[in-house]
Amino acid sequence: MKSSLSLLALLAALTLVPLGARAASTTVAVAANFTQPAKRLAAAFERKTGDNIVLSFGASGQFATEVTQGAPYAILLSADEERPKQLIALGLADESSLFTYAVGKLVLFSAKPGYVDAAGKVLGSGSFAHIAIADPKAAPYGAAGIETLKTLGVYATVAPKIVTGKSIAQTYQFIATGNAALGFVALSQVIKIKTGSQWLVPAKDYQPIIQDAVLLKAGEHDPVAKAFLAYLKTPRAVKLISSYGYAAAP
């Protein structure tokens, strides 16, 4: 145990040494639905400040678990408001930094043109073998997808056809490759896609997807992390976020 600890310390030291020589760098955990805007925001921030933002993409639930285990993320851009609150309650995140950076919208998407109609009636048609949904336990967009099926009263018939993606990104992959005829993804993933067919699920059919950002314990004394969070609130950043189909904070 002792030797593995010192080995870990050595590895940590080795990874930290080269960083000291470069510009400051901060690691941000990003919910997979926010991948595209986060890349552009980080690039714009880097151009402006010269500081380096390292982005890590995955399911919000997975990140929350990793943070409880000491993952070195400075910021969490969650796909919900629950996980940041849980981390604050555990003393792993800074409550004063909490804010809503985006409100997500759910889309029913298919790679087949003309397959998904403008009212989502295809869900009741039974004409598909598989419908892809992100794991509702780890990904808020997955939970919203399940909720929509229940609101529309088709959950019981559709449930046996559900295939689960580990994150909203893998869910999109299942649909884009045609392995699942359709599925629920985030509007931001498909807003710039002209092929296939999509239905923007009405906001009344599911609980709003309030996506909160929070400064984590590892970023407590990190000026770059704080500057990046502040940058997300600038008019320029807000405009870029809304260009990916997100609504503003309520």
């Binding site: 073998a129 598989h130 295939v163 299942f174 045609g178 392995n179 699942a180 005829a181």
Partner: peptide, 11 residues
Amino acid sequence: APLFGVTTLAF
């Protein structure tokens, strides 16, 4: 997939 008469063998 066509050999098995299904649209996909994934899942």
